[in-house]
Structure formats: structure tokens, C-alpha cells
Design a protein around this nucleic acid. Structure first.
Lengths: 338, 338
DNA sequence: TTGTATGCGTTATCAA
DNA sequence: TTGATAACGCATACAA
């Protein structure tokens, strides 16, 4: 910057102001200085700038694991949105560990990120790390996996209970009478909700809620899905449909059943929650409740930036609790009636 | 830090040294200061620190698009590795646009990242932005999609040509005689290599290289794969096997062919390059050449950190050109002989 | 082993 | 409208 000042014959502070488009500097010199800066290939040091302004234009993102279709789609959308708005993203994985989540949040705060957007770990014991962020004046936003306890920040969710209800009702209406559920870890709000939606549908249609039809999973991996499907099919009174709390388990269930000689959807109807890119491509196509991951990512970044902006201008900001609708994509795997 | 200094009754600089574990400070006071710092919940401002040290412990990653199985798996592995080594990752998408890639690199440099790890965009015209990084002393590493022109940085590749050759030979040995190729954009080194490997196999086994059997794609999306498969199957002399340069097109090809009444693998054998998580789960299982994405991500981060470390200690560093082996996973989609 | 003083690159304050 | 200078939070050369 000093070189520019010399070259333009002005003071350092003038250069700074000109580059920040400060209207107090005459348009003429502003343009002139900006031109020189460009010629000299000047790029301002955001660290130094951030030291004074307390703004880095970096948003920290903490998610359990990036290489899952839902999260990678969210991150895709977040980065696209952040890019458009002039922000960068530091992305961290908690690996579903409370301790690591906590460390990551500390690191993000040490890096002076402008805000933190997160989907919490399964075993997050308390929210002290996020409270600390708020104390330091760093906005926090939760999406998808939000804390069960109320917390004064914005949240973005989908209609988990309602969607699970709809998915189960769909199975019932297709004529399936014995419906099992591959559940996620119900410590997490979203999976508890999905379980509730499933139960509500059964109750409403006078079907019994049968404990051995409900299986809980921690990782919700292919292996877990396969093993649970195996177990269900070996019951004395096996189910004829399965509602899965994620999509990977649904895929496992479909193809494990087929491998065992069952016909899908005739003998066993299956619907999953959330989609893989290939869900629609494979045969049978996997029915699923599609989460609006693109919208969710976009909205999360837009909301946190709004809060960041409000905060740096010392305006008040009302936290929002957004609930996004899902879309139920019925494919062959649950179409008994065709 | 000043508060700590007061509380400990020492000078600011002593605190700084103690927190950095400088051995010139006696172990006793070091421990004492560190304890006080922890009690006071002190976290050093990495921005301010980076201003002096020129180290941020942030690595910039620029990839075309994050929500693709290969890249999200790489990023997963990179973040895991970076986390272990005390680094954070800023992740940017180029969306396969030269301009955006260039802007992103500029931003990363303005943020004083310690290094840049990247897989270049399809239409990257020149490498001036990466040259600039090098001029500024910021190490650069290319993986997977590397520039065609030589560039004095480390690179990590897989055996593209050899793997494509092996995949094609596999099809030939299964008894397929008319083998098509769904190619990627050959502006990119890796896809040019895959095409060459395919051609080499045909030549070696005295099969003709037939222009209408080779189809080029830019996005390599599901739609492109489906349309190309459709076109191939409508040829007067249609192929009886397809080697695909990515996996999404392979999945599209398999299920489009099945939908059209072809039997896979009997009528049409298909093998893809790179895997989706569900490749092994679906029926037929999709044969594919598995890229070692986890190893690649790990190695990329380890190598760039080595270079960063060498650089900050002003040691010399020899750039490496690593080539990783692939693994060919034969599944039902290409097993004509069973 | 510790303290003092200065610098990193930028923005903000105050004066001109 | 511009300039001089302090300040941001930390690290380091030099002095003690």
C-alpha cells in the first residue's frame, strides 16, 4: 500500500480509503488510486484488515462428515452462496465427536470467523462452545441437527416428523400392513422426530406399534442397514415394508432383500429419507423423502450473513426458526400397487 | 494477553513466549502462564499472530465441485488429515470456470493461506494465478486434474492410462468385442490419458478403434451418460460393451440399457472409472476402477504441509510427482462369463 | 531467563 | 478532501 501511496503521491491513509471506496475521497483520486493498485497487482491483506475491522469474510462450517450425499450437497450450496456474497468457507468435520466439535469451534473463533454454521454431533453433550461464540459476538446458526434444548440462535430444519408421517402413510396406502422402521440415533432431534412421525401414522391408521419392528442405528451405514434388514426378515412375523431414516440404509435394505430372494416392492416395500444422486437411476428406483439441501445451504449462508451484517452495524437482529418443506419422491421400491 | 501478563506479573513478551513454548522461558513460569491462560479462557488471535509469522495454518483447497463422490471423499480425507496436523481448510469451488478459479486463488492469497491444493477447472486457460502464488512464496500442489504443461510443483495422480487400459482389457477378456468409450473432456490430462489407455488396449488386442464408439462429454452428468448410451445403442452396429470415464455415466448407461430391454452384462458389459458409495450395493453391481481418494487426500495434505514447513524454515524442498495405484473392482455389470 | 521496543499491513481517529 | 499517527494483537530483535 505504501508503494501505491508513493506512486500516486498521496498518503497511506488516502490509499486505504480509496481502495475501500470511501466517499470522502474525491472520485477522481479514488479511481486513480484504484487503477494504480490494479496495475501493481495489489491485493489487500485480509488478516491485517481483519485485525482492525473484526471482519474476515470467513464463515466457519462444522458438520459431522463431509462425504455423505446430504452434507456434501449442503456444502456445495453453501459455498456457491458464500462465493456470490464475497465470503469464504472454512469447513470442519466433527466426526460426530463432541470433543472434536468443541475444538473446531475454538479454532474457528481463534481465526476470527465472522459466523459459525453447524449441524451438531450425535454425542454433543452441551452447547458451551457455541455459547462462548455468542459471548464473543460471533453469530451461530444451526441447521438440520439442532440442539434439543432451546438456544437463542437461528435454526433451519425440515419437516421431519411430518415427512416421516407422510412417508409411512404412503406405505400404508400402498397396502403394506406390517411396517418396520430403521431409525437413527434418537439423541438427535431430527431422528426422534422421524420416529414420532412414523408412530403417529401407524396409530392413526390403527396399526400396532411393534417394538421389534423398530431398530436403532448410530452410524446408519450400509452395514448397519443390511444387518437390520437381515434381522427383520428373520423375525417370526417379518414386516412387509420398511421406512428408513436415511437413504443409505434404504439402498442396503432394498438390495439385501433382493439378494435374499424377496421381491421389491411386491414382498417388501421400502422408502428412505434423504436421497443419493443415484437413487433415481438404479432399478428399482428408491423411493425417498427428498430434503431440500440446496435451499437449506443457501438459506443458512444468507441468514448468517444477514446476522453478521446486522451485528457489525450494531443493528438488532431477530433470530428465525425456519422449517423447510420436503418432497416425497415415490419410485418403484414402494409401489406395490404399481 | 496483557491481562495474563498482569495476572502473572510478567511482561507481555514473556507471555507470548510461554504460550509458544519457547524454551528460553523457564519451565516453571511457562507452566504457570499456560495455566493462567487456560483459566482465563485465552485463545490467541491467529490473524494477529499470522501477521508476524506469515503462517495461518490454513490451507486453501480449490476443486471444481464438492458434491461429487470423488471430490467429497477427497475433501473428507483432507480435512481429517489437516485436523490431525493442526491445520484448517478453506474450500472453494471453481465450478469448472477459469475465471472463478482465478478469483478464488486471489482470495486465498489475500487470506494468507499457507498453501494451496487444487484440481484445476476444465477450461483453465493458463496457470498465471498459480504462478503468482509461487511468486508470493505460497506452495501449490496439484492433484488429479493437473495442468498439461509442466509446472514446478508437486503433483499427485493416479495411473489413469494404465487403469483405463486394464479396464478395457478386462472387457476384452470377458469376450466383448465391440467396446465403446464414454470419454471426458480431453482438454484435461486425466481424460486424455484414459482415452489413450482405452485405445492402447484395443490396438493391442487387434480390435479396431472406431470413431463412432468414442463419445466426448463435458459435464459427465447422468443426462449426458444416458443420451450417449442411447445414441450408441441406436448405431447400425452397436457396441456390446462400454468403458466409461466416470462412474455416474456408467450407472446411467447400465440402467438406461436395462430400461431399453438389454441385459447387463449379457448384452452389454459396462465398467466405470471411479466409484459411488452405492456402486457395490445396487444390482447389478457396477464394475469400476476405484481411485484411492482417501490416500490421495491424505497424501496431498501431508505433502503440502511438508513443503510449508520446509519453506518457513527456509529449507530446500524437492517437488514430488506421485502416482498412486488404482484398484479394479469387478462386479456383475461386466461379468459376461460370470 | 526476562523485559523493552518495534514491526507486521491495515483501518480509525483526529487534525489540517 | 486529505494527511499524520495511533491502534489492532501478537512475535521478535535486542538489551538487560
Amino acid at each position: 500500500m505504501e508503494d501505491i501511496a508513493q506512486s500516486a503521491g498521496v498518503a497511506l491513509s488516502t490509499v486505504s480509503r480509496a481502495l475501500n471506496n470511501d466517499t470522502r475521497i474525491s472520485l477522481a483520486t479514488r479511481k486513480r488510486i484504484q487503477k494504480i493498485a490494479k496495475e501493481m497487482g495489489f491485493k489487500k491483506n485480509i488478516l491485517a484488515s481483519g485485525l482492525m475491522t473484526n471482519r474476515t469474510n470467513i464463515i466457519g462450517v462444522v458438520i459431522p462428515q463431509i462425504n455423505r450425499a446430504f452434507f456434501s450437497s449442503i456444502i456445495y450450496s453453501m459455498e456457491e452462496t458464500a462465493n456470490q456474497m464475497g465470503f469464504s468457507l472454512i469447513i470442519c468435520q466433527s466426526a460426530d465427536s463432541y470433543l472434536r466439535e468443541k475444538e473446531k469451534v475454538e479454532t474457528l473463533l481463534a481465526l476470527n470467523v465472522d459466523g459459525i454454521v453447524t449441524s451438531i454431533a450425535v454425542d454433543s453433550k452441551d452447547m458451551s462452545h457455541f455459547e462462548r461464540a455468542r459471548e464473543l459476538g460471533t453469530p451461530v446458526l444451526f441447521f438440520d441437527r439442532i440442539p434439543k434444548v432451546a438456544f437463542p440462535v437461528s435454526t433451519i430444519l425440515i419437516e421431519d416428523a411430518e415427512s416421516a408421517y407422510q412417508g409411512t402413510v404412503h406405505l400404508i396406502k400402498q397396502g403394506y400392513t406390517k411396517i418396520a422402521h430403521l431409525a437413527g440415533p434418537t439423541e438427535l432431534h431430527i431422528f426422534a422426530e422421524r420416529l414420532e412421525g412414523y408412530k403417529k401414522a401407524l396409530t392413526e391408521y390403527n396399526l400396532p406399534i411393534c417394538d421389534e419392528y423398530i431398530r436403532y442405528h448410530k452410524i446408519m451405514s450400509h452395514e448397519e442397514g443390511r444387518d437390520s434388514t437381515e434381522a427383520l426378515l428373520h423375525l417370526k412375523n417379518p414386516p412387509n415394508a420398511i421406512f428408513c431414516a436415511n437413504n443409505l440404509m434404504a439402498i442396503s435394505a432394498v438390495f439385501h432383500a433382493i439378494d435374499q430372494g424377496y421381491r421389491v416392492p411386491e414382498d417388501l416395500g421400502i422408502i428412505g429419507f434423504s436421497e443419493e444422486p443415484s437413487s433415481a437411476l438404479m432399478r428399482p428406483g428408491i423411493s425417498s423423502i427428498k430434503q431440500p439441501s440446496i435451499e437449506m445451504g443457501k438459506m443458512a449462508i444468507e441468514m448468517i450473513i444477514k446476522e453478521i451484517t446486522a451485528q457489525s452495524q450494531k443493528e438488532s437482529f431477530d433470530h428465525l426458526e425456519v422449517i423447510l418443506p420436503t418432497q416425497i419422491n415415490i419410485r418403484q421400491s414402494s409401489l406395490k400397487k404399481g
